[in-house]
């Protein structure tokens, strides 16, 4: 094996190339992203601290057919009742750990910490006062930095308690 193997130059299908930033819901509404109502739970909850609401949580599941390292979450994009949620207000709560979303994809999270297939991962949206109990229109886009550059989108009413 003294000479290197020849490498075939293959024609790119372009999956994941020239994608948008997925920082707004409209980026998930193109033909590449599949609508999947299963990635978002029907119920969410306010989070209280000493009787005061400090934000609320939505529970999400991975798309595709396998679990992936948390670090492979590229974007969690939400629009609640027509209002875009800033990424800075998001934290992930999973397996007794909490991280601001800014930690995802950095060395603050080890690459073999997996978001297990079918598990709900809780997303905390920090907003003083939380949200009114009731039914809210939630749009959710999920983008992953896996081999397939997977994306999924869902829009549904979510009951927040």
């Amino acid at each position: 094996m003294d000479t290197p193997f020849k490498t075939i130059i293959r024609k790119s299908i372009g999956m994941g190339q020239n994608d948008p930033d997925f920082d707004k819901i409209a980026d998930f509404q193109g033909p590449r992203t599949r609508f999947n109502p299963l990635i978002l739970a029907d119920y969410g909850r306010n989070i209280y601290s000493q009787g005061q609401r400090i934000g609320y949580c939505l529970d999400i599941r991975i798309c595709g057919y396998r679990g992936l390292p948390i670090n492979q979450i590229r974007a969690l994009t939400f629009e609640v009742d027509g209002v875009a949620i800033p990424e800075e207000s998001l934290s992930i709560w999973y397996e007794n750990r909490q991280h601001p979303f800014a930690d995802v994809g950095t060395d603050k999270i080890e690459i073999n910490w997996f978001w297990k297939y079918g598990d709900y991962l809780r997303v905390f949206i920090e907003i003083p006062g939380g949200i009114e109990q009731g039914i809210h229109d939630v749009k959710f886009g999920l983008a992953l930095r896996d081999h397939y550059s997977s994306t999924a989108y869902c829009a549904k009413p979510v009951t927040i308690v």
């Binding site: 075939i8 293959r10 024609k11 790119s12 299908i13 999956m15 397939y148 550059s149």
Partner: peptide, 10 residues
């Protein structure tokens, strides 16, 4: 070589 002469992302 999964997609033969094609590749999803080069």
């Amino acid at each position: 070589g999964h997609n033969g002469m094609f590749i999803m992302n080069d």
